[in-house]
Structure formats: C-alpha cells, structure tokens
C-alpha cells in the first residue's frame, strides 16, 4: 500500500531542498511568469471593459455577469474547454488564468472610479478638465487604492491557481507538487515545499502590491484633519 511506502520518508528533507535550489528558483520564476502574464493581460482587458461599463452603464451588469460565469467555471473545466482552441501550451494556461481576474478587476476598477467624490469631478469639470485628462489625472489616481486591492486579490488568486496548470504540463510550483505525488513512493518534500513556496509567493506579492499602493497614494496616509 502507498500508505506504508510513504511512511519511509520524512515530510521535509532539507538536504534535498539544499541540493535543488536551482530547480526551485526556476519553478518559482515560471510561477511568477504565469502570474504576471495572467494579471497583466487581465488588467488590460479589465481596464478596457471598465471604460466601456463606465461609459455605457447598461453594459455593467452583463459584463459583471460574464465575468461571474467565467469565475464560477472550475479551472479544470476551463483548461479542458480551451484545449481544443489553444492546444497544450503556455497560451492555454495563461488564457485560463486570465479569465479568473476579469470579474475581480472590473468590479474593483468600476467601484474605485464610482467612489471618486462627485464634487471632485464637478470641480475638475468646472476648472476646464477634458474627459480623458480628468480620467487619467483625477479619477484613476483616486481609484488607485480600490484598484490595487483588486490587483492583490487577483494576483493571490492566480498564484494559487497556477498550481493547477500542472495538469497540462505547466504549473510552476504545481509541477513540483504533482511530481512529488506521482513519484513512487510519493515524495513528501516536493509536495510540502511546492505548497509552502506557493503560499510564500502569494504573501510576498500581496505585500509588494500593498507597498506599491502605499507609495502611489501618499495622501491616504496623512490624515490629521482637525
């Protein structure tokens, strides 16, 4: 039985970790690459969709509904559904991951822009801003905290999901987890290290984005109004 065989090895073999630094780095890099591509493309698409939704309000509900359906479809099913179109490869993995960012990002971008106080918009109009410049200079910066909050959720979600792409031969750290599982007998260190590194990566990216948000919104920290 596998149970008996698995007991032969400890949960974490540090010497294996020490010997495989290069592999771990390579997988982490791959993991980050998938995450960056998916969130980057997702952000570009979401910005475009948000501009449409903000300009034509009636489209907001359908857009969010579409995002919601994409978000609900299991990742496993999504890989499978996209497979005939995209074939096995990075494009399949990244496309599937992108679909999970749309709902989160569109929702937060729209909420962020909607949250810009009415009087600020009116003041900007009253001083002669044109719509495009007003969007870039006033609305987008003020929406930044909410947009970055969405980016953080999307990034952390995607980092977790990248592991699932192991099934189609990608997966970054997920590949390590899968290898550890498929080795006979199972190799616990790979499973534990793969999972832990994925968590560490998620937390690191989350904190980095939080730092970016802080750096981008200096006005939000100083609040000493009498």
């Amino acid at each position: 039985m596998t149970g008996v065989l698995a007991q032969a090895r400890p949960l974490l073999e540090w010497d294996w970790v020490g010997r495989n630094g290069e592999l771990l780095w390579e997988l982490t890099r791959q993991h980050l690459y998938f995450t960056g591509m998916a969130v980057g493309i997702g952000l570009a698409i979401s910005l475009a969709l948000s501009v449409v939704a903000l300009r034509w309000r009636a489209t907001l509900t359908p857009i969010l509904g579409f995002g919601s359906v994409l978000y609900t479809i299991p990742s496993l099913a999504l890989f499978a559904l996209l497979l005939p179109v995209l074939g096995i490869g990075d494009a399949l993995a990244i496309t599937a991951l992108v679909t999970y960012t749309i709902l989160i990002l569109v929702r937060n971008i729209v909420a962020g822009i909607d949250g810009v106080p009415r009087e600020v918009i009116e003041a900007a109009d009253g001083m002669g801003y044109r719509p495009a410049r007003r969007f870039l200079e006033i609305e987008l910066p003020l929406a930044m905290p909410v947009v970055v909050a969405g980016l953080r959720i999307a990034s952390v979600t995607v980092i977790g999901l990248v592991t699932v792409t192991a099934l189609i031969g990608r997966g970054g750290l997920g590949a390590l987890i899968l290898r550890g599982f498929r080795t006979l007998p199972p190799f616990p260190t790979m499973i534990v290290v793969g999972t832990l590194l994925s968590v560490v990566l998620a937390i690191t990216v989350d904190l980095l984005l939080l730092g970016v948000e802080r750096a981008l919104t200096p006005w939000a920290r100083r609040k000493t109004a009498p």
């Binding site: 106080p117 009415r118 009087e119 600020v120 918009i121 009116e122 003041a123 900007a124 009253g126 001083m127 006033i138 910066p141 003020l142 919104t217 006005w219």
Partner: peptide, 13 residues
Amino acid sequence: LGYVIQQVGLFPH
C-alpha cells in the same frame, strides 16, 4: 471662469 462649490471639491490626491 473661477468656480467654487459647496463641498469645495479639492483633489484629495
């Protein structure tokens, strides 16, 4: 045209 409104509408950022 200078424009001043009740809620002032200063740009918070």
